[in-house]
Design a protein around this nucleic acid. Structure first.
Lengths: 126, 126
DNA sequence: CATTACGTTTACGTTAACGTAAAGTTCAGC
DNA sequence: GCTGAACTTTACGTTAACGTAAACGTAATG
């Protein structure tokens, strides 16, 4: 038997509300099976959720992240489709790499300010 | 004389609308001087704008980014204030470093999928 | 001196991503 | 068989970050 989760298992694990999880389902980003009326989540659902939240933290919209998740599960398709697919992926990748550069710049700025403040503080201690 | 900019200079440069720039001013994140009723932006205003937009691309709220920008201009203050300041900065830095790790994971995933697709495509070409 | 381009303020509208409240169901434990 | 905890659906509310429209001023240009 595969391990399963209730809605509040996941809500607790990821520190979000059950409302949020139901909202994602309402939008079609997660599709748990049911036991009667209750939702049952499996490892794949949990992974989807984890990826969605990761995307959110990076400022992606739910739709953008969902797009990427769908890419992960995409089948081969014929040659033309594959080429288009690779194109889409590398565009996404380029976008994320821009983000990464932005982030590094911002971190540099912060480190500079922090260093400066530490230096000033060191003078106080003498 | 320092170089200055009109509102549409900046709107064009950063590919945003003038409405957006006025909105940032309304919220207090930019404070251009005036010539009569017209806004005149200097290099510092332009830098603020650039930082705000960079923050946005990383999924920070305007208020979060504005907070960081204010940090850059913070004076020394006494010892206690400096210590608090350093604490705040390094918290921000830790948060951004988490983001960076998230980003790298996401990029890894994308690269994996892209490689796999390229391999499949290579088979087609033989 | 009328047109065109650019600027201004004021104010209501929109969208994403949930929060919150109401009202009801299910099930384990006493 | 009742209570309480956890689940459910439905639906209206909220906030951030602008969009959009109206109604107007100003300045260069043909």
């Amino acid at each position: 038997m595969e391990k399963t989760y209730t809605i509040s298992d996941l809500a607790n694990e990821f520190d979000i509300t059950t409302r949020t999880i139901r909202f994602y389902e309402e939008k079609g980003y997660i599709n748990p099976r049911r036991n009667g009326t209750q939702r049952i989540y499996d490892a794949a659902d949990r992974t989807s959720l984890r990826l969605i939240l990761r995307g959110k933290r990076l400022g992606l919209s739910l739709e953008e992240t969902a797009d990427m998740i769908r890419m992960y599960g995409e089948p081969g398709g014929n040659r033309k489709q594959l080429e288009k697919f690779i194109q889409r992926i590398s565009e996404k990748r380029a976008e994320l790499e821009r983000k990464s550069r932005d982030l590094e710049k911002m971190l540099d700025d912060l480190r500079r300010v922090e260093d400066k403040a530490r230096l000033t503080l060191a003078k106080y201690s003498n």
